[in-house]
Each structure stands twice: as structure tokens, then as C-alpha cells.
Amino acid sequence: GATAVSEWTEYKTADGKTYYYNNRTDESTWEKPQELK
């Protein structure tokens, strides 16, 4: 099967917290998305 390329990108805020942003859905989350686990 084809490997899905994750749409999630990991970013850090100014105070060093990590969050994740999805370019396709324009969604952001503090929790690590399922695709990255």
C-alpha cells in the first residue's frame, strides 16, 4: 500500500511549546496527531 505523507507539520511557539498544524485542513492541535504516532 502507499504510504500517506503526513500533512502535519510540527511548530514551536515563542515560549517553546510544541504544536502541530495540518496544511490541508487548516487545523492545529496541541496533541500529537494519530498519523505521527
Rank of each mutant, 00 (worst) to 15 (best):
Gly1Ile: 14
Gly1Tyr: 13
Gly1Glu: 13
Gly1Phe: 14
Gly1Leu: 14
Gly1Thr: 14
Ala2Gly: 14
Ala2Glu: 13
Ala2Gln: 12
Ala2Trp: 13
Ala2Phe: 13
Ala2Thr: 13
Ala2Lys: 05
Ala2Ile: 12
Thr3Arg: 00
Thr3His: 13
Thr3Gly: 12
Thr3Cys: 06
Thr3Trp: 11
Thr3Asp: 11
Thr3Pro: 14
Thr3Lys: 02
Ala4Tyr: 09
Ala4Val: 13
Ala4Leu: 14
Ala4Asp: 13
Ala4Asn: 12
Ala4Phe: 10
Ala4Gly: 13
Val5Met: 13
Val5Asn: 11
Val5Tyr: 12
Val5Pro: 12
Val5Ser: 14
Val5Asp: 12
Val5Thr: 14
Val5Gln: 13
Ser6Ala: 11
Ser6Pro: 12
Ser6Cys: 08
Ser6Trp: 09
Ser6Asn: 11
Ser6Glu: 11
Ser6Leu: 09
Ser6Asp: 12
Glu7Val: 06
Glu7Ala: 07
Glu7Ser: 06
Glu7Phe: 07
Glu7Gly: 09
Glu7Ile: 06
Glu7Pro: 08
Glu7Trp: 07
Glu7Met: 08
Trp8Gln: 01
Trp8Asp: 00
Trp8Tyr: 02
Trp8Ser: 01
Trp8Arg: 01
Trp8Gly: 00
Thr9His: 10
Thr9Val: 15
Thr9Leu: 09
Thr9Asp: 06
Thr9Ser: 12
Thr9Asn: 08
Glu10Tyr: 03
Glu10Ala: 09
Glu10Leu: 05
Glu10Gly: 00
Glu10Phe: 02
Tyr11Glu: 08
Tyr11Ser: 05
Tyr11Leu: 15
Tyr11Val: 14
Lys12Glu: 08
Lys12Pro: 02
Lys12Asp: 03
Lys12Val: 15
Lys12Ala: 07
Lys12Arg: 11
Thr13Gly: 10
Thr13Trp: 02
Thr13Ser: 08
Thr13Ala: 08
Thr13Lys: 02
Thr13His: 05
Ala14Asn: 10
Ala14Phe: 03
Ala14Pro: 12
Asp15Tyr: 04
Asp15Thr: 06
Asp15Lys: 02
Asp15Phe: 04
Asp15Val: 01
Asp15Asn: 08
Asp15Arg: 00
Gly16Gln: 01
Gly16Met: 00
Gly16Ile: 00
Gly16Val: 00
Gly16Asp: 04
Gly16Asn: 04
Lys17Pro: 01
Lys17Val: 09
Lys17Phe: 07
Lys17Gln: 10
Lys17Tyr: 06
Lys17Arg: 14
Lys17Trp: 05
Thr18Leu: 10
Thr18Met: 05
Thr18Asp: 05
Thr18Phe: 08
Thr18Arg: 03
Thr18Gln: 04
Thr18Trp: 05
Thr18Glu: 06
Tyr19Phe: 10
Tyr19Trp: 12
Tyr19Ala: 04
Tyr19His: 05
Tyr19Lys: 04
Tyr19Met: 08
Tyr19Asp: 03
Tyr20Pro: 02
Tyr21Ser: 04
Tyr21Ile: 08
Tyr21Thr: 05
Tyr21Glu: 04
Tyr21Arg: 07
Tyr21Lys: 11
Asn22Ser: 03
Asn22Val: 00
Asn22Phe: 02
Asn23Tyr: 11
Asn23His: 15
Asn23Gly: 07
Asn23Ser: 15
Asn23Asp: 11
Asn23Phe: 10
Asn23Glu: 14
Asn23Cys: 04
Asn23Thr: 12
Arg24Val: 15
Arg24Trp: 15
Arg24Leu: 15
Arg24Thr: 12
Arg24Asn: 11
Arg24Met: 14
Arg24Glu: 11
Arg24Tyr: 15
Thr25Tyr: 03
Thr25Trp: 03
Thr25Ala: 03
Thr25Val: 02
Thr25Gln: 04
Thr25Lys: 04
Glu27Arg: 04
Glu27Trp: 03
Glu27Tyr: 04
Glu27Gly: 03
Glu27Ala: 05
Ser28Tyr: 15
Ser28Val: 15
Ser28Ile: 15
Ser28Pro: 02
Thr29Tyr: 07
Thr29Arg: 10
Trp30His: 07
Trp30Glu: 09
Trp30Gln: 08
Trp30Ala: 08
Trp30Lys: 04
Trp30Met: 10
Trp30Val: 08
Trp30Ser: 09
Trp30Asp: 10
Glu31Arg: 05
Glu31Val: 09
Glu31Lys: 05
Glu31Met: 06
Glu31Ala: 05
Glu31Ile: 10
Glu31Pro: 02
Glu31Asp: 12
Lys32Glu: 10
Lys32Met: 12
Lys32Phe: 06
Lys32Trp: 04
Lys32Val: 09
Pro33Ser: 01
Pro33Phe: 03
Pro33Ala: 02
Pro33Trp: 02
Pro33Ile: 02
Pro33Lys: 01
Gln34Pro: 13
Gln34Lys: 09
Gln34Ser: 14
Gln34Val: 13
Glu35Val: 07
Glu35Leu: 06
Glu35Trp: 05
Glu35Met: 05
Glu35Pro: 07
Leu36Val: 06
Leu36Phe: 11
Leu36Ile: 10
Leu36Gln: 06
Leu36Glu: 07
Lys37Ala: 15
Lys37Phe: 15
Lys37Leu: 15
Lys37Ser: 15
Lys37Asp: 15
Lys37Arg: 10
Lys37Met: 15
Lys37Tyr: 15
